[in-house]
Simulated assay, not measured.
Amino acid sequence: MRILLISDYSTPSGGAELMTLSLRKQLRFRGHDVRLFASNARPIKLQPEADYSCFGTLSSIRGITQVLNPSAYNRLRQILKEFRPDVIHVRLFLSQLSPFILPLLKDTPAIYHVAWYRCICPIGTKLLPDQSPCQENAGIACIKNRCFPAAAWPSAMAQLSLWRLWSRNFSLIVANSYATQKKLLQYGIQADEVIWNGVPVHPYDRQLNQTPTVAFAGRLVTEKGVDDLLDAMHILVRRIPAASLLVAGDGPERKHLEARARRIGIGHHVVFLGHLSRLQLEERLKGAWVQVVPSRWEEPFGIVAAEAMMRGTAVLATNSGGLNEIIQDHETGLLVPANDPQSLAEALTTMLLNPRETETLGTNGRNFALRRLTEAGFVDRFEQLYAKLKQ
C-alpha cells in the first residue's frame, strides 16, 4: 500500500513527531511504501527526516504561512501526482502547513489524526494566560483573554475558518485519546475513532540509582508545568535531602527554569540534560525512582508517561486529559491536581519513602503498557484503518 504521511515537522523533537517517524519506520518494515511530507522548519536544531519538504518558518511571518503556504500547496500537488498514495494520514497540522492544502485531499482517502487542540484553539493548548483551562470558543474570546497579540488575531481566525470549511475532505478523524475525542466534540468536531499511541517495547532493565531520583522528560514550555515540579522539589529536598531531579528536554523555557532552580536554592539538586534521543532517554532515566508528568494543560495523551510505564518506572502525573486514561490512580501510578506543587511534593515524598510500593506501581504500569500501549498495536490499528479506507 502507498501511504503518505503529512506533518508540520519531521525533526525527532517531540512526542507527535516521534510517533510519526516511528509509524513510517514500522509501516515500511511491514512492506508498505510510506513517504513523509513536512515543512523544513526545525523547532530545535535537529535534522529534518522528511522524504518531501516545503517551506516552513519559525519567524514572525509564520502567522501568514499558517493561513496560506503556497510552497506546501504546490509541493503536495506535485507529490500526489507523482506518488499517487492509496491513503493520506495527516498528523501534526496547522503550525506550518496551512488549510489550503486540504482541497488537494478530496480525491484520496484521508485521515486526520489529532495530536493536540490546534483545530479548536489558535495556540493549541486550550489554556488561558493564567494557565487555567479555557472553556470558550475560539474567536473574540482570544482577544478578550489576551491569549495572543491582537495583530495576530485576524490570521488565526482566518486559518480556523478555512480549516472548518475544508476539513470535510477528511474521510476520517481519529483522536489519540477519549479525552481528546470529548474535547473535540465539545467544540463541534466529531472524531470517528480513538487510537491510543504506542511506544517501543524495551527489555526490562530496572537498575535504580542509589539515591532517590525523580525524572521529567518533555518540551520545556509553560504548559508542561516544570516550574511546578521545581517548586515541589524545593519542598521535597527539605524532607529528603538526597533527592535529585533529572530534566530531559529542551525548549524556550529552559533558561528561565535553570535560573528558577538556582533562585530557590535547589540548583545542585537538578540536572538539565537537554534534548536526548529515545535511546539516550531510556539509558539516562532507567535508574529514576519516579517520573513526573506535571502538565498544566489537558495532555491529549501523554507519550512520555507511556514510555515511562513501558520502562517500568512509576509515574506521577496530573489528573487531566489523556493521562488519567492510561494511569489508574494507586494502581499503575499516582494522579494529583494540576497547578499544585504542594500535592506534587506530598506524592513524591510518599513514593520516595516507600520504594517497594513505588516499584510495584512501576511493575503494574509496565504490565498495562505491554497489554495496551505497544507500538505494534498502534501500527496494527492504523494498518486496519488504511485497508478499510482503501476499499
Rank of each mutant, 00 (worst) to 15 (best):
V90Q: 03
R91K: 00
L92F: 04
F93K: 04
F93E: 08
F93P: 07
L94W: 06
L97I: 12
L97G: 03
S98L: 11
L102H: 04
L105G: 02
D107I: 07
A110E: 06
H113N: 14
V114N: 00
A115L: 05
W116F: 12
R118H: 14
C119N: 03
C121E: 03
K126R: 15
K126Q: 13
Q131V: 05
E136D: 06
N137L: 11
N137F: 10
A138V: 02
A138C: 10
G139F: 00
C142D: 14
I143E: 13
K144A: 09
K144F: 09
N145Q: 15
C147M: 11
F148Y: 15
P149L: 09
A150R: 13
A151E: 14
A152I: 05
W153D: 10
P154W: 12
P154I: 09
S155W: 12
A156E: 13
A156D: 08
M157Y: 04
M157G: 06
A158S: 14
Q159A: 12
R164N: 10
W166L: 14
S167P: 05
S171M: 11
S171I: 10
S171T: 11
I173Q: 07
T180C: 11
K183G: 01
L184Y: 12
L185Y: 07
Q186A: 08
G188C: 10
E193R: 01
W196I: 02
W196P: 01
W196G: 05
G198T: 04
P203C: 05
R206N: 00
L208H: 05
Q210K: 07
P212S: 03
